[in-house]
Amino acid sequence: MAIADIRTRTGYLFLAVVLGHILLISAQVNSRSGVPVLESVTFGLFSEVQRVVFGVTSGVRNVWTGYVGLRRVKQENDALKAQLSEAQIALQAQRALADRARGLEQLLQLRDRTTLETSAAQIIGAAATPDFRTVTIDKGTEAGLRVDMAIIAPAGVVGRVVVASRRAAKVQLLIDRNAAAGAIIERSRAQGVVIGGGDERLLLEYMSEGFDVAVGDEVVTSGIDGIYPKGLVIGKVDDVEKAGAAYRRISVRPAVNFSTLEEVLVVMSPTPTRESAAGGSGSHE
């Protein structure tokens, strides 16, 4: 006879109390990536649920778009072919311009914008609560992702990895209230920090009084935060409020439409600042 049968009420009670303690401990301990273990494990499990739900919904959507929604494809196809021809002509012109620019860049030795090594990932889930602007992507540590890697889209900056499980990662969008990025106004070279507004808007803060900021100015990453590579498009200034000489509020419209994002690129190559920080902390690991 066993000393104690765990299937009794006492056994369940014991398991519940032990589980409570484990949760309590997990909430206080950070994993190797610096994220609390509880959050890491919960996210890892929930991302699998999101993966399944995404698989089902995308399957249904594929059936719809692949069979049901193929009615005006012929007309669309013709229109697209025409567009493609125009684009190819434009591409030729752009290529010529790019060659000229590259030549000038080499001439001036301004090659600080190194080629970014990226990896494509698909968004498989959104945040569990509307208070946080995060998304889940289908790639994790297995694919080489790490915390604080920058996430970009063709239009511009998306956010950064905050939790990375084996097969998924949580991305904090730049519009999240806790998100920030070093920014620079491309026209005037004025530096500041772009902060998420919690909605679909960004705020540009810590701007010097002496610099000129105007509506329509393009805002790009400055690279000083060590997360986002220098020169990536953040958005455009769409509102400037001044109080005397000082800027009271500078609003930036993000270049990326976060509500329609489906695929993103993870910047795998380290930024110079991140690389030096990793090199400096290497002895602690």
């Binding site: 009670l13 014991f14 109390v17 303690h21 484990i22 309590l24 401990i25 206080q28 301990v29």
Partner: peptide, 29 residues
């Protein structure tokens, strides 16, 4: 008995953890 023992252990351990500078829950567990 075991029920009183586990609750007594949990409470005593948690109080001890809270009074010390370690992680709360390890002593309790």
């Amino acid at each position: 008995g075991p029920v009183t023992g586990l609750f007594c252990g949990a409470i005593a351990g948690l109080i001890q953890d809270a009074l010390s500078s370690g992680l709360i829950g390890i002593g309790g567990l």
